[in-house]
């Protein structure tokens, strides 16, 4: 064993590349953290991750603390818990954190910290806070739930580089703003939703999913985005057959959790009332509904007739650049192996 240090009487090896917080998480030791996010790195703002280090007087933030040989870290001393309780109580006092109808109830990192610290009733009185900003087409902002951790701002500026969000004003008036404090819907925001995915609380919410499911009712299904050719990996949060929300799969290639407006919010076309639900056959003045056998017999019969009369090259087909590989494979197999022509193409070059 190389270098080691002690967390809560456990001896743990380290190589100098990771913080105490990262190492604690890898070893299933709970340290709350509200501003730190693995994609963003340490911010050392919220102070909720403080730990006690033997020989150092002040409490240290675990998100910035690098272990040293023989260092002794205590993550749950009375002093640590008291400090964390104070931080969480102040954050709770600084907004309207009503969990009853909050969309992220059950997935909220502030709620989790309060639960772990045994805060049943916030210690301080709730102040009046700002109205919700519902001007964004897909994203709702609730400043009353914002804890000013800065994750959304970092994500907007450093990760997706859309450069819309920032802190505005000073002191007790500090808040997250879009451009020069415009409503989100009037700002330069392109609704990519990176901020929503990073938000540890319910201050940034996907409007489409509001009121549709509690967080613990959904199961996550990984899939690939149906829009451009980047191939972003999506996590569909599904209840029954309904998609409640979509997030990017963290650590996945190629998108590392990031998405754009179409990938994150453009999913519900599959539920449209306009969907084709039955085979249609042309009549003189429009289409009539038909069964599969009739429609397929008609297609196969017509193809056979044309092959007989004019040869297989009188049939041509265009495949779909949106559908799955296996569909395109079967279509070209039908054209080559059954009809007997290479007249098969798709919009390959456009």
């Amino acid at each position: 064993m190389g270098k080691t240090f002690i967390i809560d009487d456990r001896e743990i090896a380290f190589d100098g590349s990771k913080t105490v917080l990262q190492i604690a998480r890898e070893n299933d030791i709970y340290i709350p953290s509200l501003c730190y996010h693995p994609k963003l790195g340490p911010a050392s703002k919220c102070r909720v991750c403080v730990v006690e280090v033997e020989g150092i007087r002040a409490l240290q933030t675990a998100c910035t603390l690098m272990p040293k040989e023989g260092m002794k870290v205590n993550t749950s001393s009375e002093r640590v818990i008291d400090a964390r309780r104070m931080v969480v109580n102040l954050l709770l006092a600084n907004g309207n954190h009503n969990c009853l109808s909050c969309e992220v109830n059950g997935a909220c990192e502030l709620q989790e910290a309060a639960y772990r610290l045994g805060i049943e009733i916030p210690a301080f009185v709730v102040e009046e806070r700002e109205e919700r900003d519902e001007s964004g087409v897909f994203i709702m902002r609730d400043p009353g739930k914002c804890i000013q951790c800065g994750r959304c701002i970092e994500g907007c500026n450093r990760l997706v580089v859309n450069e819309v969000l920032d802190f505005g004003y000073r002191g007790g008036h500090t808040k997250v703003i879009c451009d020069g404090d415009l409503p989100m819907g009037q700002s330069s925001c392109v609704q990519c939703g990176e901020c929503v995915q990073l938000c540890p609380v319910g201050a940034l919410i996907e409007k489409k999913g509001m009121g549709k499911a509690r967080t613990w009712e959904t199961k996550k299904v990984r899939t690939t985005c149906p829009y451009c050719g980047v191939g972003c990996q999506l996590e569909l949060h599904v209840k029954g057959d309904q998609i409640i929300r979509v997030t990017g799969v963290e650590d996945a290639q190629p998108n590392q959790g990031h998405l754009c407006v179409k990938g994150r919010f453009g999913y519900d076309f599959i539920y449209s009332k306009d969907r084709l639900t039955t085979p249609l056959i042309r009549e003189k003045d429009g289409f009539r509904e038909a069964g599969w056998d009739e429609a397929l017999d008609l297609v196969a019969g017509k193809f056979k007739q044309i092959i007989k009369e004019s040869g297989p090259d009188a049939i041509a087909g265009v495949s779909c650049a949106r559908s799955i590989n296996e569909d395109s494979y079967n279509m070209q197999k039908l054209f080559r192996g059954v009809i007997g022509t290479n007249n098969i193409d798709h919009c390959a070059r456009t």
């Binding site: 985005c225 650049a321 949106r322 070209q332 080559r336 290479n342 456009t350």
Partner: peptide, 21 residues
């Protein structure tokens, strides 16, 4: 950068007139 989610795949699968998959 390919424009559609599976335009690469449709090429690879030989929805093209001169090749097999």
């Amino acid at each position: 950068l390919r424009g559609q989610n599976n335009v690469q795949g449709a090429c690879d699968m030989a929805a093209l007139p001169a090749v097999f998959p």
